[in-house]
Design a protein around this nucleic acid. Sequence first.
DNA 1: GTGAAAGCGCTAACAA
DNA 2: TTGTTAGCGCTTTCAC
Lengths: 359, 359
Amino acid sequence: MTLFAGPSSVNIAAVREVHCNQFRRVRPVGVATINDVAAKAGVSTATASRALNGKSTVDPALAARVLSAAAELGYQPNGPARNLRRQETAVLALIISDVENPFFTSIARGVEDVAQAVGYSVVLCNSDENPEKERRYIDVAIQERVAGVVLSPTGTAPNVDLLTARRTPLVAVDRPLPAAADMVLVDTRSAAKQATTHLISQGYDRIGCITGPAGIQTADDRLAGYKDALRASKRRTSARFARRAEFRADGAFEAAIDLLSQPDRPDALLVANSAMAVGVLEALSKLDLRLGADVGVVAFDDAPWASLVDPPLSVVSQPAYDIGKVAAQLLMARIADSSLPYTTTTLNATLITRGSSTR
Amino acid sequence: MTLFAGPSSVNIAAVREVHCNQFRRVRPVGVATINDVAAKAGVSTATASRALNGKSTVDPALAARVLSAAAELGYQPNGPARNLRRQETAVLALIISDVENPFFTSIARGVEDVAQAVGYSVVLCNSDENPEKERRYIDVAIQERVAGVVLSPTGTAPNVDLLTARRTPLVAVDRPLPAAADMVLVDTRSAAKQATTHLISQGYDRIGCITGPAGIQTADDRLAGYKDALRASKRRTSARFARRAEFRADGAFEAAIDLLSQPDRPDALLVANSAMAVGVLEALSKLDLRLGADVGVVAFDDAPWASLVDPPLSVVSQPAYDIGKVAAQLLMARIADSSLPYTTTTLNATLITRGSSTR
DNA sequence: GTGAAAGCGCTAACAA
DNA sequence: TTGTTAGCGCTTTCAC
């Protein structure tokens, strides 16, 4: 494993200091098993197990002995053994498409809070918008026999079928799934329509849209809502004013430059998430266009910095934390009772108008 | 489990649609074990196991039969069983103090990329700057017998001792540990000094500092570096100009309002992270103070939006991704060889000067 | 109320 | 090269 001889591959200045330390323990402290606990307490492993799991059928005096023996030995149950025997795990997998996107980390917090409250752990996996990575994590989830999965689907049907074929409880968030699963979505299409209508009402005339890759439902929905609004106000929708890019700043930057360099450039933009908004604002600055006055902007996701730019950014705020919360609740319900009918929950996004959508 | 009857506790408009779906499978598809695979392939479980694990000692023809049997049955190894038997897990736990802080999610990516490359999975846990939660997750990590732990320590020594007592490979990131563990840190003190010196050189005279809670090493270091710089330039350091708050926007907002409302207010501020910077900029705006001209600001962490504010925000950029990468490499090295001496790696932060630190 | 014993699914001796 | 078998640590019948 010379690969790990050291982090020499990091090419930034680093100081490595080796400290022959005085803390080194002498022995690996042979990890205590339930048998050790039982022996020390002078009971059978069965009784030890019952006491440790708080079963009421065990004599209080014995239970106390077991508990103190366990404490003295620093006993920690062996998870794999317990899970193997019980054929179940108190672990949820949360597979999201981008750990660095605040929208998804908020979802994570929602999931975690609910899970924690009932003694479940959450393991967070980052599929990175990459179907293969998603598939690997789904495999891991299956192999570890997690109790359930919350997924923001990146890949195509086959990945998800792995889960449904095994009847692993599954909740899809953010993006719908053509499968047997609960879903928690946002009515992003009508929010996009509302945001676009707002721009129109503010006097913007040639409104453009920068959205995510084709095939990602949320990206498509935002574009559709945008078109809905244009149509409703009897405007032509023109492909000239719509652009797609990865859900990232750099792609949105290119798209915005491209869009705004046209002779008959848009005078307003609907932007599909906050990372993209960063790229768009950079583009405006590069082209010396004033936010609001020259180009109105509404972006999805209420980033903490949105009100810091000048003028403050109008946004479509999505209830990310609640998405996670609801998803976890649905998942727990299904784990408890797999016969529940599948549901789709649609939460509302909220338009928050600030200065960037006014001339 | 009526708690989970539904997500009715979410008090925002939600549409719940129940779809009696056409996808429902008929049977739970009794999960295939290695015995089923062996039977189907007409070999013993031992041979099946060997084939599945790619051992070279098995007849190619048999191996092929096993593999196709496994594929047909949709066989997925039972992780708990395997881990129990092998007494090891290819899983790393990463316990960070705030999932919503980009600094830590960047670390997560670094850890993940290294782990993935060698077939390890990473489970991400959010201790939320809460020693009790940290302790719970450390317990989980121990119980699941993870191969190693990367930790940004929140709690005090006892938590970590749980790990070291069991000799669980451990790498601390961001904050030092008085224990037997590798550490990956940032020379945040000298970076803070450098940033403060920069402010002085730009003609700011009464420089303040808003840092994190006492006892968190990174918070203390930033304050210390700030004082170093003042002392080096023969200025008095005054407690009047230093404030502490949680590493969050709201706390920093209060602190900044407090600081800047003084008659002899600071004319520049060193801010300890990007979330706090949001609070500080909000305070400036509320008090009608101009960034740069009235109050120079340098903040830790190069957030994507830093160059969008006007004037652009000067920052101390920390090599978060590399911290994660190095930490994971060290952890893998130690997993492979527990006798390695403990090391402390210190990476450099970089001052990026932009408009906010110029008059 | 307690203990003896079986067995979850897998891997690794040990035999053949 | 392959099969037989023991056993990882735990929970849970089933007797007592």
